[in-house]
Every structure is written in structure tokens, then in C-alpha cells.
Amino acid sequence: MANKDYGFGGLLCLDMGTEEKANRLMNLLQNCTQFGFMAVSLGYYETLMSCSGSSTSSEMNAEEKALAGISLGW
């Protein structure tokens, strides 16, 4: 992602295996290390984290998520 007026950004995806593990990691990063914010929308200039398996992809059923390679911990 790049915008000559605003700078550059990137995207990192981790599959923690379960939603519980993903939420624990995001909670640790946000509250213990002050690294990023947990958010459903990724439309902000600071570092944001989201468990998309249960948020942005929540409208998909289990079969659709499996076909797309989305686990609950992703």
C-alpha cells in the first residue's frame, strides 16, 4: 500500500489457530506493549489488529471460510 502524500503501509497476517489465541495476542500487544489497537475496521493511520475470522469475514459460513482459507484464528 502506498500513497505519495501519506506514506507507505503494509499488511501482516498471522493465523493463531483459534479465535481465543488471536484475541489473547491482540490484547497483549495493545494493553501490555502499547503496540496497535484492536479494531474491526482497518481504516485508520495507526497500527490496527483484527481477528477477521470472527469480524470482517463473519458474514461467511464455515464452508465459504474454508474455501477462502480463513480460520477462526486469522
Rank of each mutant, 00 (worst) to 15 (best):
K65H: 01
M26C: 03
C51Q: 02
L42N: 03
G69A: 09
A68R: 04
S41N: 06
K21C: 01
L11E: 14
T33F: 11
G36Y: 11
C32S: 00
E46P: 11
S54K: 04
A68D: 01
G69C: 06
S58E: 15
L11W: 15
D5S: 01
Y45F: 10
L42R: 01
R24P: 11
C13T: 11
M49K: 11
Y45E: 09
L14M: 14
T56R: 10
Q34D: 08
E64T: 09
T47P: 11
L25C: 09
D5F: 00
F8Q: 06
S52G: 13
S57T: 15
F35Q: 04
L72W: 15
L72A: 14
G69K: 08
S57M: 11
E19Y: 01
G69M: 11
W74F: 15
M16S: 06
C32R: 00
L29C: 12
T56G: 08
F8K: 08
G9M: 03
L48Q: 09
Y6K: 14
G17N: 08
M38Q: 08
L25Q: 07
L48E: 05
S58K: 10
F35S: 08
A62M: 13
C32H: 00
S55T: 12
M26R: 04
L42G: 05
K4W: 01
A2T: 14
L28F: 14
G9L: 07
Q30Y: 14
E20P: 04
S52L: 13
A2F: 02
G53Q: 01
T33V: 09
